[in-house]
Design a protein around this nucleic acid. Structure first.
Length: 118
DNA sequence: CGTCTGACGCACG
DNA sequence: GCGTGCGCCAGAC
């Protein structure tokens, strides 16, 4: 874990937090960005997750959506519906590329990892 | 080294 | 409540 030596600390934090997202829960790019200390770098979170495709280990990038619970990054997965399928398989209700009970399944690292220092 | 782009988020109208 | 514009940070050209 934490193979950050290669990448910037920013990326490694994104990977670490994303890996801590429990199955059946999701979080947002902005939430991660805030947690790692760059609240205005939400776009970079997505950028970092995009590069997880080439990482030697698995990162549950499908558990990260935008603040509206919209699966904005689904087109970056192998198939057009891969992201939604993965979420559905974890018990997350998704309809037309959007998480239904987003507020219910939302996992905020600021609250769950408030005692964790990356 | 300058410029464009992008899995976002927020302010405005 | 919805569409548009702008700023953010890092990487690719």
């Amino acid at each position: 874990m934490n193979p950050n030596s290669n990448s910037s600390n920013f990326f490694s934090k994104v990977y670490s937090v994303t890996n801590l997202i429990p199955a059946g829960r999701v979080t947002s790019y902005g939430a991660i960005a805030r947690f790692i200390g760059s609240p205005q770098a939400a776009r970079m979170v997505g950028w970092a997750l995009n590069s997880t495709k080439k990482l030697p280990y698995w990162v549950p990038a499908h558990r990260v959506v935008n603040r509206n619970g919209l699966l904005t990054g689904k087109k970056h997965f192998i198939g057009n519906n891969t992201m939604q399928e993965l979420l559905l398989s974890e018990g997350i209700e998704v309809e037309d590329g959007k998480i239904i009970n987003f507020q219910k399944v939302f996992w905020d690292p600021m609250l769950e990892l408030d005692d964790v220092i990356l």
